[in-house]
Design a protein around this nucleic acid. Structure first.
Lengths: 143, 143
DNA sequence: ATGTTCATATTCACCGATAAGCACTTTGTT
DNA sequence: AACAAAGTGCTTATCGGTGAATATGAACAT
């Protein structure tokens, strides 16, 4: 299960350290693609095939669905972690997610998300997250 | 059943003693996450996996669900109690909960809560918590 | 009261993960 | 062929996490 929040920085060539705690769950090779809310998604190989399967079930006749599928598949890249624990983020993905240097990597269960750190901080400080709402959701989920 | 109130202090590296009485109920490994009212929550593994299962079912396409899942999973860390009964609190969680040195740990049935001690004192002294008021609210819940 | 045991506090030393800089290779362009 | 740009790999220094040793203090039994 991918969890936690980590902060690292891109090197001059656009490589990023994969936090040691995420590495084992994610595997040596994994997939990153454009994500929602301005971040990148990263999937382990098994989670990626799951995800692909779901995308395949969407009706080709629906324009919305076609867009949705294109969005995820066109952005997808396979990444490999090198001996020093780093991986390269393709330049188009870096651009999409507005990445400069400071990066936040978060584990979200079945995937990781890679954020421009400032964006992530802002996202967290916004009222995306109100305590009342959280409490309400928690009781709904039986915690 | 996790109960009681304990006061301890963080060491220089951000580690905290887990009170002996909570250890057996919580297990060697447990999960801490961002909680409500500015504290951290700690769950036993069984409590947590329940919760995870539920989070997994939430739809990727719903923004509310994404927010909620991100809040809990990005804030989560697995902790392991070392031979001396201590565990490390990740720096982002320490920051979130405003932890300096003096800590209060309380048992709340199915989870523990970890507080900055001053915050905890203040929270208790405020009219957040008048026993009478609480009792009154409880009748509404049919107790 | 005294000694024993257990829980907690404090300090120090070591190791692994990460940051950062640099050099080399590959590829594509002129 | 020469060069620039992008990708890959290595080396070193630093810092945070981890474990060990010791000190302090409370609880308990004799």
């Amino acid at each position: 299960m991918l969890i936690g929040e980590y902060e690292h920085s891109l090197d001059a060539k656009g490589r990023l350290i994969m936090p040691a705690k995420l590495r084992e769950d994610l595997g040596e090779k994994f997939i990153i693609t454009k994500g929602l809310d301005g971040c990148l998604f990263g999937f382990s190989q098994t989670e990626w095939t799951n995800f692909e399967e779901k995308l395949k079930t969407l009706p080709l006749t629906n324009k919305n669905a076609r867009d949705f599928v294109r969005f995820f598949l066109s952005g997808a890249t396979e990444c490999e972690i090198d001996k020093q624990g780093r991986f390269l983020i393709a330049s188009n993905l870096r651009e999409y997610a507005g990445m400069e240097k400071e990066i936040a990597i978060i584990g979200v269960g079945t995937r990781i998300e890679i954020w421009n750190k400032d964006k992530w901080k802002k996202y967290n400080s916004d009222e995306n997250i109100s305590a009342d709402e959280i409490a309400e959701n928690m009781t709904m989920l039986g915690i």
